[in-house]
Design a protein around this nucleic acid. Sequence first.
DNA 1: TATTGTTATACTCTATAACTATA
DNA 2: TATAGTTATAGAGTATAACAATA
Lengths: 167, 167
Amino acid sequence: MAVQARYEQYEELSRQLGAFGAVKRELGRILPSECASGSAAVVTLLGRHGDMRMSKLAELLAVDMSVTSRHVAHVAERGWIERLPDPADRRSRILRLTPEGHLLLAELSRRTTHLLAERLGDWSEEDVTQLTRLMARLRAGFDDCRALPPRLPPPEPQTTTRTPATT
Amino acid sequence: MAVQARYEQYEELSRQLGAFGAVKRELGRILPSECASGSAAVVTLLGRHGDMRMSKLAELLAVDMSVTSRHVAHVAERGWIERLPDPADRRSRILRLTPEGHLLLAELSRRTTHLLAERLGDWSEEDVTQLTRLMARLRAGFDDCRALPPRLPPPEPQTTTRTPATT
DNA sequence: TATTGTTATACTCTATAACTATA
DNA sequence: TATAGTTATAGAGTATAACAATA
């Protein structure tokens, strides 16, 4: 039946999602000293989208603003960004890459693309494009519903133990 | 030129990889109490591949054995797996799911597939299959070369500051 | 001497809650 | 009263190094 096949697809996708952390860790290992992955994300997003406020950055990072605040403080301490006052709202701060930040961004791009070129050198252009497109779509599917938290499925109709976790 | 286009593909893929943490965090939020994502990975891999030794599990998890040891201890304390002596090597231990572990595995599968069904319900079967296939291939590309650590690209030929990180 | 696995320590990322300053 | 951002605290994941037991 089609439903059964679809759930097996989800199972398999779930396994790939679980194992995908290894890829991100590997990418993290090539980062420059002092620049952890959180810092790299801040610099990369500012380079991609331009100056923005904390709240906007938190949204793009898809993490709580408290986390964003810590990452931004770390990056600002190292001189890669500056925090300008927002003339429209004195509670807010505008984040902007410094010249040193742009240099770091170029270095990050160089290292990342080099590693990906090493690992994906034998991929067809179509496959790279497809993977990027499908990952973006999956992420968008999770972003969209971030307001409403994920719901659990209804409990099993069977009369078996339903919550093995809370033993 | 083609090389330039390829590097732009890598840039875009890199951004998607960076933003992908949000998907994994969302999947982590639906886990049962006491079962963190590390525990879920252990149970899932044992269910998928059957009984195995610590070293094999560490390889499948793609993390250091010390990390594996901690996750396994957590899972064993909750009765989801047992650690049997290995008759072939007394240093080693064979990991096996308990009946409670199988119940937990079923519950994990139920919750994960439900969430994916909610988020990917409008995807074509081809797209789901493609994404799974390409993620597996990308991960394999990183797994294969895990023995040799990722190498950094050669320094820029230009006479600019090459290491903005070590300011 | 080499390998399997455990433990101690330290670092990063994340979320929740309490707090300050401003709207 | 509500919002933008910060800080304190706690929990989870990971790696390195030192260690025990066995091969």
